[in-house]
Design a binder for these strands. Structure first.
Lengths: 158, 158
DNA sequence: CGTGAAAAATGTTTCGG
DNA sequence: CCGAAACATTTTTCACG
């Protein structure tokens, strides 16, 4: 929060969070600004890290990665060293899309994208059993991805 | 999976999943193809829905001190009607970024982005208590977002 | 289907307010 | 810091292998 964002910035963010391929002209028209103004603001927000990434999102079904699995993991030791080791292991696994370190009964929540249960089972072995420091884990299979987004509410509903 | 994707397509997907602002020329160079070839493949994958969205991802910290909260929700009735009502309610809530309908003890897993605990508490009231059909819910606060991505493994690790 | 060179559109830079 | 016009890219189109 080192940066101050005005109403124009927030409006632009709202747009590019939904579609970052929108042309500067189209954005400029919607927010009532000139093309270079929009370009400057986008460039600033990208260099300052307000916008931290620009990505395409693909449908899992289309590339053969079919199942989404949500795993709650509890660790044995919460010593910093051990915890960092676990975090790194999770971070480096491509099938783990998201990993949150959380309060409460579980220590980690993982969101994974795997091809099938066979692949998942193999991963549980290498990630949870063999690697150590995992007390127990609870697996939930996603039957329906009701909503999948990275959008952050800005403006009126923020 | 109506479409067949060749090695070039997968390679391109890998790139744009990390950065969809990469120029066609840069992509072409990396995958050893001509610029228009890359353009055609991208256009095809977008029209066919393999690439289903192109978005900017913003840092939550930069748009107001935001917290990520993971909620497990169990419903009373799993009748289709009631379930759809709940899904729609969750889908329409801007603070709910992700919603999965899952097997197991909980019925839904929600990933929420809220400004503070006050906002979260207000949402729990309107989403869980007043709206009905929610048996119980379990709240976990994310202390650290270890990994946050929508990337799907393609190619060698898929 | 992929390639390479033209046209159209987009993004960027330079200025003066 | 914004906006208008010149400038440089990129994207697209098209004829051809």
């Amino acid at each position: 929060m080192t940066t101050r964002l005005d109403a124009f910035d927030l409006h632009i963010l709202k747009i590019v969070q939904a579609n970052n391929l929108a042309t500067h002209r189209a954005i400029a028209e919607e927010v009532n600004l000139s093309t270079p103004a929009v370009a400057r603001r986008l460039q600033r927000m990208r260099s300052e890290g307000v916008i931290w990434k620009d990505v395409s999102i693909v449908r899992p079904e289309e590339v053969g990665n079919r199942m989404t699995i949500i795993v709650n993991v509890a660790v044995e030791s919460e010593a910093i060293e051990q915890l960092d080791a676990v975090k790194h292991r999770f971070f480096r696994c491509p099938q783990i899309q998201q990993c949150y370190y959380v309060t409460g009964e579980a220590d980690f929540v993982l969101i994974m994208s795997v091809k099938d249960m066979t692949e998942y089972e193999a991963l549980t072995r290498s990630l949870f059993f063999e690697a150590g420091n995992v007390k127990h884990f609870y697996t939930a299979v996603a039957m329906h991805r009701v909503k999948v987004s990275m959008e952050i509410p800005v403006g009126k509903d923020a």
